[in-house]
Computed example of a mutant assay.
Amino acid sequence: MRLPSWLSQHLAALRALLVLTVVTGLAYPLFLVAVGRLPGLDGKAGGSLVTVDGKRVGSSLIGQSFTDADGNADPRYFQSRPSAAGDGYDPTATSAGNLGPESVVDTLADNPGDASQSLLTQVCARSLAVGKLEGVDGSRPYCTTDGVGAVLAVFHRDGLTGPVTRVVSVNQTGTPFVATYGGVPVEPATIGQDYQALGGVVTPVRGDAPAHPVVPADAVTASASGLDPDISPAYAALQVPRIARERGLTAQQVRELIAGHTDDRALGFLGEPGVNVLELNLALDGNR
């Protein structure tokens, strides 16, 4: 007996569904699980977790904070780069800050929950904090001495041209970082005012900070994922004096530890060398 064409087509589709379900929904996943259990691969398949005395202390693939009981940077440990993932290094909320180089004007508000910092101010504040922690110059171009973006809204008589008629330090409600600009006194910002909408030309001011800041870029910017476990050798080197002082080690001993936990470029030419912060800190504690 020959089945109707519509029924034979549905039966063929059902058989294909069952076969593909078994192959791609059962056999293939189970095969990958089995491969992940092979010696040498099992640790990586499990998340590259790091254990000390049987206790999980993190993953070599995910960064984490090293802070004291008050949430401040613990001076005994190397510090990681900033994170924009959730409250920091949250693998369930991996993300970047989504702020670009044109993000230079802060949103000022009476309610801290409504305020937000521009990327420039975030970088300035972080650089100042790192400089204070490491005892170095944390200044950067286009940053004020109190760690906000050095940005003015400049008003001209003819809109974009002509003599300057008014100047506002858009990221400061207190004393402006410069007294005058173009011969005009600089005003502090008023909360709630959009000076760009009023016709002000956003003008970052470079200042007299060195062209090459002491604090490296990865110390003040988050990675795209917010989970980067590595820092640059330059940022690690910046932390050597503090670590040596806090640990009672020589600077050379700390540098040797850094060298032992520095990964070269992938395939010898891709990316940049990186220092795994978790593994380096475990080595400081004598656990690696």
Rank of each mutant, 00 (worst) to 15 (best):
Ala237Trp: 01
Ser223Arg: 03
Ile243Lys: 06
Glu256Asp: 15
Arg247Cys: 03
Glu246Asn: 04
Gln252Met: 13
Leu238Tyr: 01
Arg255Gln: 15
Pro229Asp: 07
Gln253Thr: 10
Ile231Arg: 04
Arg255Thr: 02
Asp228Met: 12
Ala224Met: 09
Ile243Gln: 12
Asp228Val: 08
Glu256Lys: 11
Arg255Pro: 09
Val254Pro: 04
Pro233Arg: 07
Arg255Ile: 00
Pro241Trp: 09
Tyr235Met: 14
Ala251Asn: 08
Asp228Glu: 15
Leu238Phe: 03
Arg242Leu: 15
Pro241Gln: 12
Ala244Gly: 07
Val240Thr: 08
Ser225Phe: 14
Gly226Asn: 09
Gln253Trp: 02
Gln239Ala: 13
Leu257Arg: 11
Ser232His: 12
Glu246Asp: 02
Ala222Trp: 03
Ile231Val: 15
Gly226Thr: 06
Leu238Arg: 06
Leu227Phe: 06
Ala234Tyr: 04
Pro229Asn: 07
Ile231Tyr: 09
Asp230Ser: 11
Tyr235Trp: 11
Gln239Pro: 01
Asp230Gln: 13
Leu238Asp: 04
Ile231Lys: 11
Ser225Tyr: 06
Arg242Asn: 06
Ser223Pro: 09
Tyr235Leu: 07
Ala224Cys: 01
Thr250Trp: 00
Arg242His: 08
Leu238Trp: 01
Leu249Cys: 06
Val240Ser: 10
Gly248Tyr: 05
Ala237Pro: 02
Leu257Phe: 08
Arg242Phe: 03
Arg245Trp: 05
Ala236Gly: 06
Gln252Asn: 07
Leu227Tyr: 13
Leu249Asp: 13
Glu246Arg: 02
Pro229Ile: 03
Leu227Glu: 07
Ile243Trp: 12
Ala224Thr: 14
Gly226Pro: 12
Arg255Glu: 15
Ala222Cys: 00
Val254Phe: 14
Ala251Leu: 14
Arg255Asn: 14
Ala234Phe: 10
Ser232Gly: 00
Ser225Thr: 15
Thr250Ala: 05
Arg245Glu: 15
Leu257Cys: 03
Pro229Gln: 06
Ser223Phe: 13
Pro229Arg: 08
Ser223Tyr: 03
Ser232Asn: 02
Leu238His: 04
Ala244Trp: 07
Ser225Val: 13
Val254Arg: 10
Pro241Glu: 08
Leu238Glu: 10
Leu257Lys: 09
Ala237Asn: 00
Pro229Met: 04
Gln253Ile: 05
Pro229Glu: 04
Ala251Asp: 14
Gln252Ala: 15
Ile231Asn: 07
Ala244Asn: 08
Glu256Cys: 00
Arg242Ile: 09
Ser225Asp: 10
Arg245Ser: 14
Leu257Asp: 05
Pro241Ser: 02
Glu256Tyr: 00
